[in-house]
């Protein structure tokens, strides 16, 4: 194994094509061909050892840096689960009602109460749809406009109807919906993160 490695190194050391590149200064301009040019000199040896050590150190620190930078992206910030939203009796049929809920979320070293708003729509038939207030275009917050009876996104004029379907503007798909369930007249939604 060691013999093989040494043979390999010596082949590199005596290979003029490789060291012709490394030589600069006088030798580059002095075109006469000396046999000694094909041996590795002390200067070249020190230069390549320094280069290899430098590359090793860069790798040794450089690879951990990648992990260091992407670390927060690799952890979950919340836990999925059912969240109690609002008693059904509070909802006015046919009009999306903003409902807020808070959850503890882990952000970095802090556990923080994060408050979100969703829109609950109780239909005349009695079933409920809960819409996210996050625009499907570029995640601005949409707002229910009672005068116009539409959801309006203030960023790029995305317009959604009361069911969350896109009426105009850039949003590529309807507003996201939550899974819902009703227990003892209380509306629950399933929150993913």
């Amino acid at each position: 194994m060691l013999r093989l490695a040494l043979m390999h190194i010596s082949r590199i050391c005596y290979n003029p094509a490789i060291f012709a590149d490394l030589r600069c200064g006088t030798k580059l301009r002095f075109t006469m061909d000396w046999r000694s040019d094909y041996y590795i000199g002390r200067r070249e040896f020190v230069a390549s050892v320094a280069g290899i050590l430098g590359a090793l150190i860069t790798l040794l620190v450089g690879l951990p840096i990648i992990g260091y930078l992407i670390a927060p992206a690799l952890r979950a910030s919340g836990v999925a689960g059912w969240v109690s939203l609002v008693p059904l009796s509070m909802l006015q049929p046919g009009i999306p009602t903003p409902c807020s809920f808070s959850r503890l979320k882990q952000t970095g070293w802090k556990r923080m109460q994060m408050t979100r708003t969703v829109y609950a729509l109780l239909r005349d038939s009695g079933d409920v749809t809960v819409l996210s207030d996050i625009c499907t275009h570029l995640s601005c917050k949409v707002r229910w406009s009672p005068e116009r009876s539409v959801f309006v996104c203030p960023c790029h004029d995305g317009i959604f109807d009361r069911e969350g379907a896109v009426l105009s503007g850039p949003p590529p798909r309807p507003l996201d919906r939550f899974d819902t369930k009703v227990e003892n007249g209380q509306l629950f939604i399933y929150v993913e993160d």
Binding site: P64, I65, G67, A71, L74
Partner: peptide
């Protein structure tokens, strides 16, 4: 103080950096 605890214990290779 907490952010440094986070670097040391939670961030990948934070202890190294």
């Amino acid at each position: 103080y907490n952010s440094i605890q986070y670097i040391m214990n939670e961030v990948a290779f934070g202890w190294l950096i």
